[in-house]
Amino acid sequence: MTSSRVAIVTGAGRGIGAATALRLAADGAAVAVLDVDAQTAADTVERIRTAGGTACAVVADVGDPDQVKDALATVEAELGPPVILVNNAGVIRDRPMEELSLDDWNTVLDVNLRGPFLMCQAIRPHLLEQRWGRIVNFSSSSALGNRDQANYSAAKAGIDGLTRTLAIELGPYGVTVNAVAPGYVVTDMTAGTAERLGMDFTRLQQMVAAQTPVRRVGRPEDVANAVAFLVGEDAGFVSGHTLYVTGGPMR
């Protein structure tokens, strides 16, 4: 990756998004750290700059078309035309189907599926102009179905379809579109899941690790490494693929 390439990572204030932003910056990209939380976005930017990289913070709700449009304009003004997009931003509202409210459904679909669509649509003119680009969407092992996640599973299954379709549409312009599907990764989000289940977080990690072929849970850096491959030159013939980063085969 060359330093002239500008990347956007959504939900990059913490967790997997922050790890991905740091990895892409270390690989030479100028990174727009996009998040709804101004403070966490600024924190990630500071970490990148301290390590010698180039970054800017952009505050936006990816589910809002106007904010997405403004965010892309800010990125171009501060760093240049973006050609790499990592759609990581996500939320969960886990409940049994009979307890899911319409707000639970809409919130998860808006951030996890509508958001990537809007971001892809907004960056498309830059990719076509440069005749080169990389999009990595975040799917999940939950796309295969998971208890209490009807909304999240539906959104992530939608990401898989969106990814394959955009790979077909954008491929002739030198753009690859792929997805990564993390399994269990230690983040604030999974800590929240443990709390919701009334389980000790460390104990939950031990239980998950025991059921994972590589016998450990995932780290944000594991996923960031996969993203780094997909946005690099070596992955130029990989498109329309969902890469499971799960420590073993999925069902």
Rank of each mutant, 00 (worst) to 15 (best):
50 T>Y: 14
163 T>P: 07
57 A>N: 07
173 Y>P: 11
53 G>F: 05
80 G>C: 08
167 A>L: 01
90 G>P: 04
171 G>A: 11
115 G>P: 03
145 G>Y: 09
126 H>I: 04
37 D>R: 04
220 P>D: 10
75 V>D: 05
145 G>D: 01
14 R>F: 12
9 V>P: 07
219 R>M: 14
52 G>Y: 11
99 E>I: 14
43 D>K: 13
229 F>C: 05
113 L>D: 02
29 A>R: 14
31 V>S: 05
188 D>V: 09
25 A>N: 06
18 A>N: 07
211 Q>T: 12
232 G>R: 10
160 D>F: 11
112 N>P: 11
93 R>K: 13
230 L>E: 09
90 G>K: 00
134 R>T: 06
130 Q>K: 13
111 V>F: 07
40 T>V: 14
186 V>A: 07
234 D>R: 15
132 W>Y: 09
221 E>S: 13
119 M>V: 08
151 N>G: 09
214 V>P: 09
27 D>A: 12
222 D>A: 08
143 A>I: 13
226 A>H: 07
221 E>I: 11
19 A>G: 02
212 T>Q: 05
89 A>S: 01
3 S>V: 14
184 Y>K: 01
58 V>W: 09
90 G>E: 00
17 G>E: 03
146 N>A: 14
189 M>K: 04
23 R>Q: 08
59 V>T: 12
235 A>T: 01
116 P>E: 08
175 V>R: 02
244 Y>I: 05
32 A>N: 08
13 G>I: 07
228 A>V: 09
225 N>D: 12
70 D>V: 15
170 L>I: 04
63 G>D: 08
94 D>F: 05
161 G>V: 02
221 E>T: 13
66 D>G: 13
152 Y>K: 00
225 N>M: 10
232 G>Q: 10
34 L>H: 09
129 E>C: 14
23 R>P: 08
55 A>F: 08
63 G>V: 05
24 L>C: 05
228 A>Q: 07
174 G>D: 04
11 G>R: 06
125 P>C: 03
57 A>F: 06
183 G>E: 01
17 G>F: 04
